[in-house]
């Protein structure tokens, strides 16, 4: 009933009523395993669901008999079965969870900082010196092109690049540093099966590896005010060399307008 598929951009498709019957495309390394586990769960749920209802209706329709007495056969054995079922699901899920969350990113991972602000996402690349400059809330001035409050006094901040769209290379691990300036935001990329809240005053790291090039949606999934619904951004996943080009180009222009 549910299969991963590529997102359609055309809105005029008559088959659109079926569109949501699928998970969005899957463009991250940990995605397929997650999808697989999700589908497994959904099928099991569907089976239990129908089974339970079948038992219910069968019991209602069949001729009357004296009440059951056998606690073990009717109550505890099925319970043990369900316990085993749920336990296996839990263990499988924990494995996947541990794989994505228990360990930090590798040192070679691409460093990117994501900042949520009512109602936009900003992305910051550390630049050649590979260190993020200091930011101070007092200096925040979106008007003057300094939405994050970069401190010009800090040598590291000169080469930092702040962008409004997230551009990532394929098959390279990314280490995201999630922060929020004002309220809690929810950083979510459905096509990457990725979701983590950005909490002010408490930066968090998540790491993942994009696989398929393409353009994807970045949503905000934590109620953060009246603009919550339009707080989105675009993720572009490029092949490595194109990404390198983009990066250098972007650096030039940013150094240009810094001059």
């Amino acid at each position: 009933m549910i299969f991963p598929r590529k997102t359609r951009l055309s809105n005029s498709n008559p088959a659109l009523l079926l569109a949501p019957w699928f998970l969005p495309a899957d463009a991250s390394a940990h995605g397929p395993a997650l999808d697989h586990h999700l589908l497994l769960n959904l099928w099991i749920t569907l089976t239990l669901l129908t089974l339970a209802h079948l038992i219910l209706f069968a019991g209602l329709l069949a001729r009357r008999r004296p009440a059951q007495k056998n606690l073990w056969r009717i109550e505890y054995l099925p319970l043990i079965g369900l316990a085993i079922l749920f336990a296996t699901l839990t263990i499988k899920a924990e494995r996947l969870w541990a794989g994505t969350r228990y360990t930090g990113a590798s040192l070679t991972a691409l460093q990117v900082e994501v900042t949520g602000v009512q109602f936009a996402w900003y992305f910051r690349y550390p630049g050649p010196d590979a260190t993020f400059g200091i930011t101070r809330p007092q200096l925040v001035a979106p008007g003057e092109g300094n939405p994050l409050g970069l401190d010009p006094a800090d040598p590291h901040s000169a080469d930092d690049q702040v962008t409004s769209e997230l551009v990532l290379p394929t098959n390279r691990e990314v280490d995201l540093r999630l922060t929020a300036q004002d309220v809690i935001h929810g950083f979510s990329i459905p096509e990457l099966r990725l979701k983590q809240n950005a909490v002010p005053g408490q930066p968090m790291h998540i790491h993942f590896t994009p696989t398929t090039p393409g353009t994807y949606a970045i949503l905000c999934t934590q109620l953060c005010g009246l603009g919550h619904y339009r707080m989105n951004a675009t993720l572009r996943i490029l092949p490595r060399e194109q990404f390198a080009l983009w990066l250098s180009a972007h650096q030039k222009e940013s150094t240009h307008d810094s001059k």
Partner: peptide
């Protein structure tokens, strides 16, 4: 039954990472 069975799905963090707040 119908509403409850989706509970254990949400109860698995890895799946909740996709389903949370949807």
């Amino acid at each position: 039954i119908t509403g409850g069975l989706t509970g254990p799905i949400l109860a698995q963090p890895i799946l909740d990472e996709y389903l949370h707040n949807t």
